[in-house]
């Protein structure tokens, strides 16, 4: 082993300091290249406000849905290809590995890549993936032309084409409908057998019944109508046109608390029956013969918010 001279020791010291400085510089540069870390640090010590787009911003309303549709499957928190995330305005500003500012209009790398022909090696979305329309790309360009802001709202972009209306249907809770139907299902089935083609549910999504007894070969009587008493609370529509019912059915009808539509035209029923059903809480429409309806009764129905259709007998 050679004797160590002071000069060598000084050299070693200098070298190690140099390496330490270089390593620190390298670490600092590495941290600086992590835009999200830098932003988090600045936010946590209060140097800058939290970076995010306003809820009603043009970005959130019009631009984010485009990225969501075409980009986010590869550029989100789970799979940040090229270290780029497009799942929020905040992440977009961190720009990914390119470190290019993606909120400026000029030479915007994102737009440049989206403009490339679909089969280009560098095209985004890549070849084979669902691709944005020209109109969507124009919308992004328009947003960038006004500064790529997370603050500006749709009012600031009057030239932007109107947003396509999206019709959304409420989710149907089939289990809940089944639960509502289940308690009286046997009684409903029995009535469907007893009165074929006369009893059905209002819709697949409803537990309420529509009962049409007007086309029975044998006109239904007051007595027969009592057969519906077990399901009275489910009947929403009842057509008794040309049936044999009289005012004696009033009690059976009053029990139909969900009844919305009633047709008693061309029956033996009188104004007395109409007076009694008028207070049903859900009743909206009634069809009755003109001979039993006078002006006073009409006004009473109007006051109750029920449309009374007067049927002239032919």
């Amino acid at each position: 082993m050679n004797q160590v001279t002071p000069k060598q020791q000084l050299k070693a010291k200098r070298y190690l300091y140099f390496v330490l400085a270089l390593s620190i510089l390298w670490i600092v540069m590495f941290i600086q290249s992590q835009a999200e870390w830098v932003q988090n640090i600045k936010e946590s010590i209060g140097l800058v406000p939290i970076l995010q787009a306003k809820e009603n911003s043009f970005y959130n309303q019009r631009i984010d849905p485009i990225f969501e549709k075409y980009c986010v499957s590869c550029h989100d928190g789970n799979k940040d290809k090229g270290h780029l995330r497009l799942d929020s305005y905040r992440q977009l500003t961190f720009s990914g590995r390119s470190e290019a500012d993606l909120t400026v209009a000029e030479n915007n790398l994102l737009v440049e890549r989206m403009k490339l022909p679909a089969d280009d090696r560098l095209a985004m979305p890549p070849y084979g993936r669902e691709r944005h329309s020209e109109a969507e790309l124009e919308l992004i360009k328009l947003w960038l032309a006004k500064g790529g802001s997370g603050e500006l709202t749709e009012d600031d972009f009057p030239e932007a084409p109107a947003k396509a209306k999206v019709i959304k249907f409420a989710d149907i809770n089939w289990q809940h409908i089944e639960q509502l139907r289940e308690p009286l299902q046997p009684q409903v089935s029995a009535l469907q057998n007893q009165f074929p083609s006369s009893v059905s549910y209002l819709a697949r999504t409803s537990h309420l019944l529509s009962v049409n007894l007007s086309h029975s070969a044998m006109p239904i009587t007051d007595q027969q109508l009592t057969a519906f008493q077990p399901v009275a609370e489910l009947i929403a529509e009842l057509n008794l046109n040309r049936s044999g019912i009289t005012d004696a059915s009033a009690q059976a009808l009053i029990e139909m608390t969900e009844l919305q539509s009633l047709n008693i035209s061309q029956t033996q029923a009188t104004a007395q029956l109409l007076e009694q059903v008028m207070n049903l809480p859900n009743l909206k429409t009634v069809f009755a013969d003109s001979k039993i309806v006078d002006q006073v009764l009409l006004e009473k129905f109007t006051q109750q918010g029920i449309r009374l259709h007067v049927v002239e007998r032919g």
């Binding site: 060598q8 050299k11 070693a12 070298y15």
Partner: peptide
């Protein structure tokens, strides 16, 4: 790799 290079240059420049 950086550590490796630091060591290699330590040998070259210091030793």
């Amino acid at each position: 790799i950086w550590l490796h290079l630091v060591a290699v240059f330590f040998y070259l420049l210091v030793k």
